[in-house]
Design a protein around this nucleic acid. Structure first.
Length: 312
DNA sequence: GCTCAGTCTTCACCGGCTTA
DNA sequence: TAAGCCGGTGAAGACTGAGC
C-alpha cells in the first residue's frame, strides 16, 4: 500500500456518505455539488477496489469493506483535526504540561522558588522537572524536546541551532561561616589568598569565568584545599569549617538566610558574566516555549539587573 | 405495469494551477 | 504562453421504490 492518489478530501467524502447514507445529503453537508460528491466517491472506489456503498432503495448502504475502513478513516480525520490542524494557542491556566529546565544546582536554588510562586498564580496545573546534564547531552536534550529551557551560564550553547536571551548579569562574592578566623572583620586580599578554599567547579560552570579572570590578571591563585561536585555539599562544609568559597552572587542570595554563613565582597574587582536562557531553534515558534521564555524574561530580567549584594 | 419523484452516474465544460 | 491536470458545476440520462 502506498499513499499515491490519497486525498484527505476523499476521506471526508467517505465519512459524509457513511453518516448521511446519501450522496446528495453528503454533498450538502460538505457544501459541494452532488456530482462532485459522486466523482469523489468513485475515486475512492477505484483506490480501495470496492464499491464501498451500494444503493438499496433510497439508501446508500456501506459494503463490508466500507464498514471495515470506517473506524480507521474516522481516526485519521480526528487526528488531523485535533493534532495537525488545531491552531488553538497555548493556555497556561489550563495546561497540565510538564516543563523541563536544565540548571546548575545554584539555578535550582535561585530560580525555582520564584518560578514556582509564579506558576501557582498563572499555571496551577503545570508540573516542573529540573535536569542536570553534561554540555553534549544538554544540546541533544534541547534539540529533541527533552529539555524546554536551559537557564544560567551555558557557554557551550552558542551554536547556530540555539537561540539565547540574556536575563541579566552576575558577579562573584565570597562566603564563609560567621567567626571564620581567616576572614576577620573585613576580607582583605591577603586574607582571601591565605585562606583555605573549597570549590564546586563541576556544578558551577560560571566559575570558569572567575578562574580565567584571575589567571589573566596575573594574581595568585586561591589555595583550594577541597573540591566537591555539589554546591549543596559546599554550603554545608563552609557552614561548619574554616574553609571559604568564591561563588556567584546568586549562590550568595540563596544562602543569605542560612544560619551562620556570611557573604563578603571580594577584595578585588569581580569579573562579570551573563546569565541567559537558551532554547533550540526547533522550538522557537512553539507556543509553550514562547510563553515560557517570555515569562522567564519578565520574571528575572529586572531582578537580575537591579539587585545588588545581599545585606550582611 | 405505468408513472412519478428522488437519487446516482456520466458527460461536457470551465477555471485555476503547474510545468515545460 | 500553451498544454495538461484536477476539481468543480450543470445538464441529461439511468436507476430505484412508492403509489395508483
Amino acid at each position: 500500500m502506498n499513499l499515491d492518489g490519497i486525498d484527505f478530501q476523499l476521506f471526508k467524502t467517505f465519512e459524509a456518505v457513511l453518516r448521511t447514507r446519501s450522496v446528495t445529503a453528503a454533498a450538502e453537508s460538505l457544501g459541494l455539488s452532488q456530482p462532485t460528491m459522486s466523482y469523489g466517491l468513485n475515486k475512492l472506489r477505484a483506490l480501495l477496489h470496492d464499491p464501498l456503498f451500494v444503493r438499496i432503495g433510497n439508501e446508500m448502504r456501506p459494503t463490508p469493506r466500507a464498514q471495515a475502513v470506517a473506524v480507521p478513516i474516522r481516526l485519521i480525520l480526528e487526528t488531523l483535526e485535533k493534532e495537525v490542524l488545531d491552531t488553538r494557542t497555548f493556555d497556561p491556566a489550563t495546561s497540565d504540561r510538564e516543563i523541563r529546565f536544565c540548571m546548575a544546582d545554584i539555578g535550582e536554588m535561585y530560580f525555582l522558588p520564584r518560578i514556582l510562586r509564579f506558576a501557582d498564580t498563572v499555571a496551577p496545573n503545570m508540573t516542573f522537572r529540573v535536569l542536570s546534564l553534561t554540555p553534549d547531552r544538554l544540546e541533544a536534550a534541547l534539540a529533541n524536546g527533552d529539555v524546554d529551557l536551559a537557564m544560567g551560564y551555558f557557554p557551550d550553547l552558542s551554536k547556530d541551532n540555539f537561540f539565547q536571551q540574556q536575563l541579566g548579569t552576575s558577579s562573584f562574592v565570597c562566603i564563609a561561616r560567621a567567626g571564620n578566623p581567616h576572614v576577620g572583620k573585613r576580607l582583605t586580599a591577603k586574607r582571601y589568598f591565605d585562606a583555605p578554599h573549597i570549590a564546586a567547579h563541576t556544578a558551577l560552570r560560571s566559575m570558569e569565568v572567575f578562574d580565567r579572570s584571575l589567571l589573566a590578571s596575573g594574581a595568585e591563585q586561591p589555595r583550594v584545599k577541597l573540591r566537591v561536585p555539589h554546591f549543596i555539599a559546599l554550603l554545608g562544609i563552609v557552614a561548619q569549617s574554616d574553609l571559604i568559597a568564591t561563588v556567584p552572587l546568586e549562590a550568595a542570595h540563596a544562602v543569605t538566610h542560612a544560619s551562620n554563613i556570611r557573604v563578603h565582597r571580594l577584595p578585588f574587582p569581580s569579573p562579570v558574566f551573563a546569565l541567559r536562557q537558551h532554547w533550540h531553534r526547533r522550538y522557537h515558534h512553539d507556543p509553550v516555549n514562547k510563553w515560557l521564555r517570555e515569562s522567564m524574561q519578565g520574571l528575572f530580567h529586572d531582578l537580575l539587573s537591579e539587585r545588588g549584594l545581599p545585606s550582611y
